[in-house]
Every structure is written in structure tokens, then in C-alpha cells.
Amino acid sequence: MATLRTYVIARLLLMPVMVITLLTLVFIILRVLPGDPVSVILGPKAPPEVVEELRKALGLDKPLHIQYIDYLGKILHGDFGLSYYWKIPVRDLLWPRFLATLELSLLAMVIAIALGVTLGALGALKRNTVIDVVTRLIGVASYAVPVFLLGLMMQLILGVYLGLFPISGRISSEYIGQFRPITGLYLIDTLIQGRLDIFVDVLKHLVMPATALGFIISGVINRMTRQSLLEVLDKEFIIAARARGIPEDRILTKYALRNALIPILTIAGMQFALLLAGAVLTESTFSYPGLGTFLVTSVTYRDYNAIQGAIVLYAIVVVIVNTITDILYAFIDPRVRY
């Protein structure tokens, strides 16, 4: 276990280093490359001395390396600055939107795992049959389909033609302000406040975006499930079980799937970055008020601090999740240790 412990410690130590590397990258992109936040903040009628003052107030007149240190220092204290557009702290804007994204992502992940494991298991069980081919092709299709096309077609068919689900947003207007956001995850908040009508409404809003996003992610899980099941199915205890005449589907559920499930779940965790990337487009397609829509809106408003804040938050989340899944993976699969 000594090596495992060393790996975990090394991986944890690497975490802040990776965060700082990404922060530096964000700084380089947003501050060093050309672009002028001041002209965005101030309207056409601002006198030049106001422009100069603001420049100073924002610290944009200082040398770059000082700006860099200021920037790192502030972020490490959890200060993302003031949104140029909304004129309120970026942190206050980010948090509820991040929770919205989290809610969508978690649901999408559940759908992805359900879909991916089912298809993958089916493929492995019926190896080299038509079913295997179909499930693999569905997997390939899920890599190739743009999530916004899937989303728009769902909106057209399920939303416009059939009227089953609302085509956008997170909650119907009539429920706005009718419950207190305690956790920020509306599904939980509405449940604990006993507002099942709102719960159903929120769930209906989530169905289409979560399914679209879940399908995109399911491909990787589908492949992983098939692969690890095939590996397990070749193992001796399975062969032994087969020799004892246990039916194939029981072998699959009782022996193989159980052995393969934990690595599959860990790998699902590793798709987190993919999930967040997909969420940006999904949120935008469904006008879902998450971190992704916020990033894109802030880009249209050229709200530098907001863009920076959103990306930094993404970076921190990704590094944390990656570290956790890497460590978990190391527990399962001893080969990954360096």
C-alpha cells in the first residue's frame, strides 16, 4: 500500500499546481491578449478623466506581473471581482448558476450511466451479433451528434409538436419566487418544502436537456462497459461458472456486471470535463440558467470579470473532480500508478 499512499499524496499535491497552471492560462488569455475592459464598462459619454480613474481603480495601469499577483491573490481569497455588467460581485452570480449546472449535470450523468451501461452490457452479452453492432453504432453516433441538433429536434418534436415538455428554462414563471432556494438544487428544495407541483415542473424542465446531454456522454460509458465486461467475461471464474452450466444472463448480472460496475462508475466520473463542455451547449440550446449560459451571456456583454470568474470556477471544479476520480481509479486498478 505504500506506493498507493505515495500516489495519493502526489496527486493531492499536484492539485493546487494544476489549478495555478490553469489560472495562469486564463490570465494570459484574458489579460495579456488585446482587448479593453474599460471601454466596455463605460458608456460613450464618459469623460477621459473618468476612464483614467477607472483604469487605475481596476489596476489596469500596473505592470503585468503585479496584475498577475493581484489576480492570483484575489482568486485564492475567493474574490472574483465585480461584474462589469451587473455591477454586483461575480461570486454571487456564479454560485446559483453553478448549482443549476450541477443539477442538470448530475441528472444527465444518471441518464448517461443508465443508457451507457444498458447498451454496453447488451453489446457484450450478445457479442458479434446484430444487437452488438447496433449498440456500438449508437455509441459512435453519440460521439458525433451535436448536442444542440439533438436538443433542437427534441424541442421541435417533444416540445412544439407534442407539447410534452417546456422547451426552455428551469422553472415556469408562475412558480417564480414561490419557494426558498435552500440548497440551490431546485429538485431538492421543492421536495423539502413540500411543493410537489413545483418539483414536477422543475423535473419537466430538466427532462429534455438532461436526456440530450446524457445521450452525448453515454457513448463513452457504453464503450467502457462493453470493454470491461468482455474482459471480465474472459476471466477464469466466469469460465468456471459457465462450465457449471449457469445461464449466460445470470452470469452477466451476478458475476460480470458486479465486477465491472465500479470501474465503469469511476470512468463515468472521468467524463466530467466532457459533461461540463456538453453542458455549455445544452444550456444554451434550452436557455437553461446555468454556468454555461452565464459564460456565453458574459461573452456577449464582454463582461471580463464574469468570463474570468466562470472559467476559473470551471477550472477548479474540473481539477478537484479529476483528482478524486484519479485517486479512486488508482484504488481499483493498480496499474495506473506511476
Binding site: 494544476m18 488569455i29 491578449l33 470535463a273
Partner: peptide, 23 residues
């Protein structure tokens, strides 16, 4: 490796949005 791993871990399109915004 550290730099590349960090970038690799990051959701691609988000980085691209930031870059495309600036460029």
C-alpha cells in the same frame, strides 16, 4: 507535462470560447 495535463483536463469548448472571445 504539467501544463499539457492541465489543459487536457479542462473542458475544451470552454477554453475555446474564452480564446475565440479574445481573438
Amino acid at each position: 507535462s504539467l501544463i499539457m495535463d492541465s489543459v487536457y483536463a479542462f473542458p475544451g469548448i470552454i477554453l475555446a470560447i474564452a480564446l475565440a472571445f479574445v481573438l
